[in-house]
């Protein structure tokens, strides 16, 4: 993950945002480090019968219960490779969610100049969870908006 556009953790210049990056189905995603509580190793999942397909189960996170969400399902990714088991844990309004990922990568600082909004050609069902993308020299980092996951999924319920 080393490149000129990225610098490692400590640099906190105002023109930069730090992302916790990870791989799901071979694609690179990132979440603003400030929204990430922790990253966990694979943990046992408790299935929730009749739950929507994107809910993989519940995780006992040191006595707190976290809901595991399947990013493959949410982001409409191919399901050919085995499911991810590591999780990025995010907290929003006292609710914990564990986003299941395949592999965790570095925390990187990315210059805000490389930011661009998500192209319109992306499936809107997946696009609603993206804040935008960062053009990195070797790759494209898709930024996931944790809040929108909470909100749009909740709204969906209402209908």
């Amino acid at each position: 993950m080393s490149s000129e556009a990225m610098t490692l953790v400590d640099s906190s210049n105002s023109g930069q945002t730090q992302y916790s990056t990870f791989l799901v189905a071979g694609r690179l995603y990132g979440i603003d480090v400030m929204s990430v509580q922790e990253v966990t190793m694979p943990m046992p999942l408790t299935n929730v019968p009749l739950s929507p397909p994107f809910v993989k189960g519940l995780i006992n996170l040191r006595g707190q219960i976290s809901t595991a969400l399947d990013l493959r399902e949410l982001l409409i990714l191919p399901k050919d490779s085995p499911d991810g088991k590591m999780a990025v844990v995010c907290k929003h309004e006292d609710c914990l969610v564990s986003l299941l990922i395949d592999q965790i990568c570095d925390v990187v600082g990315v210059s805000n100049e490389s930011f661009e909004r998500t192209p319109d050609t992306i499936d809107p069902d997946a696009r609603r969870f993206f804040k935008g993308v960062h053009k990195l020299p070797e790759n494209i980092l898709t930024v996931i908006d944790v809040k929108s996951i909470f909100h749009s999924l909740n709204d969906k319920k209402g209908n």
Partner: peptide
């Protein structure tokens, strides 16, 4: 339960 699961009326919590 997480708000995402609130619509499942058969559970009152975990």
């Amino acid at each position: 339960l997480n708000k995402l699961l609130k619509s499942l009326s058969l559970y009152s919590g975990a």
